[in-house]
């Protein structure tokens, strides 16, 4: 579950821990209706975990977005 996102990084809420330095791939789905697209816009991202900490009952993992690609429509 995404908590926050910027052009440089993402903050995930997870039920398990991720090790800092771990390379991850993830996809962001942006609502097409807000962006003026017929379908939701999918962006494939590659990044790495920079920190992960337990907050209440879940882990908050911050990851960079090192590379991304808009999915073909």
């Amino acid at each position: 579950m995404t908590r926050n996102v910027s052009g440089n990084g993402v903050l995930f809420a997870l039920d398990h821990e991720l090790q800092p330095g771990l390379k991850i791939n993830f996809s962001l789905r942006m609502p097409g209706a807000v962006l003026g697209a017929a379908h939701d816009v999918l962006v494939h991202c590659a990044g790495r975990v920079v920190r992960c900490s337990l907050s209440q009952s879940q882990y908050l993992a911050a990851a960079t977005i090192d590379d991304y690609q808009f999915a073909e429509q």
Binding site: M1, T2, V5, S6, G7, V10, F12, L14, L18, L22, K23, I24, N25, F26, S27, L28, R29, M30, P31, A33, V34, L35, G36, V41, L42, V43, I65, Y68
Partner: peptide, 29 residues
């Protein structure tokens, strides 16, 4: 990507729907 996120946050393309952004999956390498 920042442009798309800006549009999402500021609803500059279409302003009548709630902001929503969901990460679909996290895949460990």
């Amino acid at each position: 990507l920042e442009l798309a996120l800006y549009c999402l946050h500021n609803k500059i393309v279409q302003a009548d729907l709630d902001e929503e952004l969901v990460a679909q999956k996290v895949i460990h390498e």
